[in-house]
């Protein structure tokens, strides 16, 4: 029974990682860049939702929607101002710019909202479901459910809609996509918008489960989710989902059975071992080099 309850809380944490990892992986797939500012978009989303609910007493749903709108706009603004001019630049330059954006968001949050931790209210209360000896909180159920919905919606979106097909085309070959009449810049913007919108949801769920909100809230989950995306094979949507869930479960088990303090070491060791066996991640495509 203990095992089962750890598994469930692991899946819940993993769902949050998966939602964040989806943002990383989509942006990576299409723009071939590691968007280090993604974790901080999560934090901004959480703050927006927090203030909407606590200061303006808006219902949670409105708060979440507001956070999504703000993050979507923020993601697009970041892309337009900081990343778009660097489309032809070496990838390291883009990486450093992303780090700059990350610092900027963290410090702007520090100035706007101060470093004192905010206690985030759960968006659906602290209710629990009793199943025999097993207690599952509503937040956990909601997190897993939302993750599944997002996963299926995204798979459908990329597979069946015009925009989704455009995204896949761009991630495969930008030049060819442009020749086919696809608006590459618009598609990339759209990807950032979707990724950032998801980040807002992830932020709210993260803070509902772990209710302390500070300007650096997003950075560690951001790094973990990035790890999850690589774990599953970066660029692959099912990979991000699988990687996120596995990472969450491994982390929770490591905390429960090995040691709380060493859990990060265990998680990252597993990652290294997996990458040794499968150098392109669990579901990543192995691309043969052409000579």
């Amino acid at each position: 029974m203990r095992f089962l309850s750890f598994l469930i809380s692991g899946l819940s944490l993993g769902s949050i990682y998966a939602i964040i990892a989806l943002g990383y992986t989509m942006v990576y797939g299409i723009a071939k860049m590691l968007n280090f500012a993604h974790g901080d978009v999560i934090m901004v989303g959480s703050y927006i939702c927090f203030f909407a609910m606590m200061r303006y007493n808006l219902p949670p749903v409105v708060g979440v929607l507001l956070a999504m709108v703000v993050c979507t706009v923020l993601g697009m603004v970041i892309e337009r101002t900081a990343y778009k001019p660097l489309r032809q630049a070496p990838s390291l330059a883009v990486l450093i710019t992303a780090i700059g954006v990350s610092y900027f968001l963290q410090n702007a949050a520090l100035l706007l909202w101060s470093s004192s931790p905010k206690v985030f209210p759960s968006i659906i209360g602290n209710g629990k479901i009793q199943l025999g000896e097993l207690t599952i909180s509503h937040v956990t159920l909601l997190t897993v459910a939302i993750c599944l919905v997002i996963m299926f919606a995204l798979t459908w979106f990329t597979g069946n809609t015009k925009m989704g097909k455009a995204m896949r085309a761009c991630s495969e070959d930008k030049g060819a996509a442009q020749l086919m009449g696809i608006d590459v810049n618009g598609t990339i913007s759209m990807t950032f918008a979707i990724g950032s919108g998801l980040a807002a949801i992830a932020g709210v769920l993260l803070c509902s489960a772990y209710p302390t909100l500070v300007p650096t809230t997003g950075s560690m989950p951001g790094i973990k989710a990035f790890t999850a995306a690589v774990f599953g094979g970066i660029g692959s949507i099912p990979g991000a989902f699988l990687g996120g869930l596995l990472l969450g479960v491994i982390e929770t088990f490591a905390k429960a059975y090995i040691s709380t303090q060493l859990s990060d070491a265990v998680v990252f060791s597993v990652l290294i071992i997996v990458l040794l066996v499968r150098p392109a991640g669990l579901l990543g495509k192995v691309i043969n080099e052409k000579v």
Partner: peptide, 27 residues
């Protein structure tokens, strides 16, 4: 492990390694 990997996968392994070292020295 680094020698077997390329690009961003290599980067993430070095990141993971840094975190492992930090975690171990912290405990």
């Amino acid at each position: 492990p680094v020698l077997r990997l390329k690009g961003d996968y290599l980067a993430i392994v070095t990141l993971a390694f840094g975190e492992i070292i930090k975690s171990i020295f912290n405990n």
